[in-house]
């Protein structure tokens, strides 16, 4: 088997520079063939998704907005180890660690917590490496389809703890459903 006859895709075509005869040079047959190809597309299903009314079906591994999780007792899980910030390829995460005071035991699970936790949504690429790196299972990328809101100010895209931490009532509901099961 010579190299000229190998066709892995099965669609190999020899290119020829044969001179066209008179009928071919009228392009009529070729154009009629082409017209039949295009008219078939008139009746095929349209691929457009009418966006605001319809939304695209998401992939099972879709990664959306981040969330800082709470445990069953509603305490923040994050211990501000900084592994997420270290693993982040876009360098979008910054945090400030602080020691937990005795009266804050019901707020934070670990002895150290993040007093400031910020993700720059302009830099984030939603790769999910922070989620993989986290030893405390504190940060997750949710399946939320809500996109980051547009704005004219850069500051609006730096999401602090007010936007990232899981809402309390959500944590309570999670615990309740867990208890019910």
């Amino acid at each position: 088997m010579s190299i000229e006859t190998i066709s892995l895709s099965g669609r190999k075509k020899e290119v020829s520079n044969k001179k066209m005869n008179f009928w071919e040079s009228l392009y009529l047959v070729a154009i009629v063939k082409g017209l039949f190809i295009t008219i078939r597309h008139l009746f095929t299903r349209k691929v457009t998704i009418k966006y605001p009314e319809q939304t695209r079906e998401l992939s099972p591994v879709y990664r959306g907005q981040h969330m800082l999780m709470r445990d069953e007792e509603g305490r923040e899980r994050c211990t501000a180890c900084g592994l997420c910030a270290l693993s982040c390829p876009a360098e979008a995460i910054t945090m400030t660690a602080e020691e937990r005071k005795p009266e804050e035991k019901h707020l934070y699970r670990e002895e150290k917590y993040a007093s400031v936790y910020e993700i720059n949504m302009l830099r984030c690429i939603f790769c999910g490496l922070c989620e993989e790196a986290c030893p405390k299972q504190a940060i997750y990328l949710t399946k939320s389809q809500v996109m980051v809101k547009s704005s004219g100010k850069r500051e609006d895209f730096i999401f602090g703890k007010d936007k990232l931490v899981m809402p309390l009532d959500m944590a309570i509901k999670n615990t309740q459903t867990k208890a019910a099961n």
Partner: peptide
């Protein structure tokens, strides 16, 4: 519209 239909799109709507 016809351009869109021939390209499997919907066109201005």
């Amino acid at each position: 519209k016809i351009a869109a239909w021939l390209q499997d799109r919907i066109g201005p709507n």
